[in-house]
Structures are given as structure tokens and as C-alpha cells.
């Protein structure tokens, strides 16, 4: 398993090197306003940190989405299937690589956010809470899409993902047209509503989200193990 994880790092070395400066840029970007604008208020800092979180998570997603493509070769699949616990280890290495990458970047970002708050003299806790929610969303998306990618191969799996994302965007637009938009009155109102929701005591949704995410992530891994051999039909020789 450790060998397969090491293989993931080696195979995605270029991508890791390519995304590192982007992540460093966004990380630096969240510190800069605190240094250049000393009178930055708490809301402005939350907005900066939220944008930085979104951009970092999206950058990570770009790498994580392509993680299966490298191994979509029939020979490799046959070899892995012939080794003891090979399928389990192959799939686990992908899941662990994804989760470890996301969690490590988010953990390092929490340090930077605390520093941004400390420089600015405001509390960055809300920024960290938002970042954590984005991490759970990221892991949930990976948990949902990975079995499809495993079962249908990257090309068709990506198509299915596009359809799901299209449906989500469509639902968002429909809500935008006909739903209750009073909470989005202004950017500040929206942020206030979001902060209120995130800091509400006894918020069971927020408290259960981390555990539910990890459980779904594990279930997704088990499903992917079952579907792995089926995906071979869509692979190159």
C-alpha cells in the first residue's frame, strides 16, 4: 500500500509541482490584504479568506480529478488484480492520496489563516470554519464521483460528472429565479447569514458533517473496489 502511495506521488509529481505555486499564490494572497490594508474589517477578511479557500480547493480538485487517468491501462489492471489484496490496495491508495492531499493543504492553510487574522488583529475562526466546510464538500464530491470514474473510465465518468454538475447548476439557477433570495440581499447580508449559520450552537448539520463525510468516503471506496474490474472494459490496452 505504501508503495502504491509512493507511486501516486511519483506519477503525479509534475502536477504536484505545477499546483504548488498556485496554492502558494492563493495562500500568500490571503495574507497580503492583512499587511497592505491595516484597517481591513472582520467581514472583509472573511471574504478574502473564503475566496482564497474556494480557489485553493478548486486547484486541488483539478489535480484530484485526473488521478485515475494514469492507471487506466488494461495490463496494469490485470497485474494489480493478480496481486494479493491488489484491487483493495490500488483503490485505497487513490482514496488515501486524495484525502491526504486535501487534508494536508487545508491543515497548512489553517495556520496561514490564523496568521492572517493575527496580522489583522481580527478573528479568523470563521474563515477556518468555512475552509473546513469546503474540505467536506470536496471529499463528498470525490466520494460521489469516484465510483462512476472507476466503473466507466475517466472519459465517461467525467461526462457523468459534467451532467451532475450541470444539474446542480441548473437547480441553482432555478432557485435563483424562483427561490427565497432574501438571505442574499447584499454580500454583507449573505456573509452575516452564513456566519450566523456556521457559528450557531447545537448546529447538528455542522457537527455531523465531518463524520458523515468520512463514512460516505469509506462506502465510496468499498463500492469502487467492487466496480474496479468492470471499468477495465473502457481502458486502453
Amino acid at each position: 500500500m505504501f508503495g502504491l502511495l509512493y507511486k501516486e506521488v511519483i506519477v503525479h509529481k509534475k502536477q504536484l509541482i505545477m499546483i504548488s505555486p498556485v496554492i502558494i499564490f492563493f495562500t500568500g494572497w490571503c495574507i497580503v490584504p492583512s499587511i497592505t490594508t491595516p484597517d481591513l474589517n472582520e467581514w472583509e477578511l472573511i471574504l478574502v479568506l473564503t475566496l482564497c479557500s474556494i480557489m485553493t480547493i478548486l486547484t486541488l480538485a483539478m489535480l484530484e480529478m485526473g488521478i485515475f487517468e494514469a492507471d487506466e491501462i488494461k495490463k496494469w489492471q490485470a497485474y494489480i488484480a493478480s496481486t494479493p489484496d491488489g484491487i483493495k490496495n490500488q483503490i485505497a491508495s487513490k482514496y488515501v492520496f486524495n484525502a491526504a492531499l486535501s487534508c494536508s493543504v487545508v491543515s497548512l492553510l489553517t495556520i496561514v489563516y490564523q496568521a492572517a487574522g493575527a496580522i489583522n488583529g481580527t478573528d479568523a475562526t470563521i474563515g477556518i470554519i468555512i475552509l473546513m466546510q469546503l474540505l467536506w464538500i470536496q471529499l463528498l464530491i470525490r466520494a460521489l464521483e469516484t465510483p462512476f470514474i472507476i466503473c466507466f473510465g475517466s472519459k465517461q465518468g467525467n461526462l457523468i460528472r459534467m451532467i451532475i454538475m450541470g444539474a446542480a447548476i441548473f437547480a441553482f439557477i432555478v432557485y435563483g429565479l424562483f427561490g427565497d433570495l432574501s438571505v442574499f440581499g447584499s454580500l454583507k447580508d449573505f456573509l452575516e447569514w452564513m456566519v450566523d449559520f456556521l457559528t450557531k450552537s447545537n448546529n447538528y448539520i455542522l457537527m455531523l458533517t465531518p463524520a458523515v463525510t468520512w463514512v460516505l468516503y469509506y462506502i465510496s471506496y468499498r463500492i469502487s473496489c467492487i466496480l474496479y474490474l468492470k471499468g477495465g472494459e473502457h481502458y486502453d490496452k
Partner: peptide
Amino acid sequence: TYLFGITVAGT
């Protein structure tokens, strides 16, 4: 469950 979840994420 919340503490379990964030503990894994912060390993």
C-alpha cells in the same frame, strides 16, 4: 462524531 471527523482531517 464531530471530534472524530476533525481529528482525522488534522492528522
